[in-house]
Design a protein around this nucleic acid. Sequence first.
DNA 1: TCCTTTATGTCGACC
DNA 2: GGTCGACGTAAAGGA
Lengths: 237, 237
Amino acid sequence: MTAYEPSHEQACDLVASGLENSMLISVLGRCRVDYDGRASSTLDAGDRLVVLKPDGTVLVHTEEGQQPVNWQPPGCSQEVTVTDTLEIRSHRDTPSEELTVSFEFVAHAVAYDVTDDQNLSLQGTEADMRERILSDPEMLEDGFEPRATERETPAGAVDIYGTDADDNAVVVELKRRRVGPDAASQLNRYVEALKRDLHAEKSVRGILVAPSVTERAQHLLDKYGLAFIPLQPVTDS
Amino acid sequence: MTAYEPSHEQACDLVASGLENSMLISVLGRCRVDYDGRASSTLDAGDRLVVLKPDGTVLVHTEEGQQPVNWQPPGCSQEVTVTDTLEIRSHRDTPSEELTVSFEFVAHAVAYDVTDDQNLSLQGTEADMRERILSDPEMLEDGFEPRATERETPAGAVDIYGTDADDNAVVVELKRRRVGPDAASQLNRYVEALKRDLHAEKSVRGILVAPSVTERAQHLLDKYGLAFIPLQPVTDS
DNA sequence: TCCTTTATGTCGACC
DNA sequence: GGTCGACGTAAAGGA
């Protein structure tokens, strides 16, 4: 279903029909946009691409930027009306949010029935790093043995919990990118929380594993007595 | 410029022409997607919407989700070729990333010349909270006087730096959302850094301003001796 | 539902 | 270019 420079009525019919039949809808033209909800914003008339997905997502894209200039998350309800403009309204509760797009001119409108049952397979993530360390723990240090992943502490869940050659408790925090002070603080919170949990039965060491570390973060690590081990998220040759 | 169920050659011409003339291009059809760069991923054939922006952005959207399933950031170079499939390739250096979309069927293809010089005006942000406190400092506490914003410390820049009724130094950290332990740690780092900077000439207090606080973060604040003041990002009535 | 963490986060500001 | 922090972050996974 497609329309080139449709009248507001034609465009309204197409969008309404697309909404009814759970189609992917794309409308290109000159519009203004108003949003009110968690924040609020206004956008005066300009040329934009508006996408409506069958899951209730709305995206408003301008000619630049990777991110939509306005949007609604999945699960919203859409309705379309025509007065002197073509108005697409999207609403949700919890939190209450409303997005209104008013087209003064529609260049193209398309509705298409879309199915995509293929799942994305992704490598090079933090989950990958964890799997590699679990399959070869001594890559961290000799004698390291993982005991648990996602072990809970009062400060949150630890990526890898284990013991070293001297049977000290070891907390390993993984980051796939260069780390800043936040990661050092986070690891320190885990170590301190575990020390309290273990009632000082044994000492607790902390190891931060990431490709590299900023200067400020290294200072924090030194101050806290934590270790850093460099590791790239993907092996590659 | 638009095409309904074009041949690969027609679609290729349309996309090539759109790229050449810095137009916004949208292609809807059945394709597979391969990405290799910061991570790497594969996506088998399915129906998707592909958007090419004049700034070099590429977005691949499926029927669900607010985020694109694959993408390239602004500044990438695109090229389009046709063999037995219509292939759109996008590449950039630093970091080296490549995205390839192969269409086995094109349902719609559109290229449109877009201009949007309107800027989005947004309210209810952290910047708003800062302005409100600066215009009425006593909303935090009687006698509070702002001395600087973005004051630099070895731990980073402080949102608002000021003094209280007893001339103690005060560090104010703003968050527009409910805060977790990270914010408490961050504020503590600022306070500790300022104590060192000021050579203990005066005591340094820390105030975290946000709509609300998690239990864990409140514990951390208590431990560090920091204060919390609830404040909504938007006043409203 | 709330809470926490990750992300090919993206984006902007500053150095 | 690197570093840092905000975002109407979104999305996933657990309690």
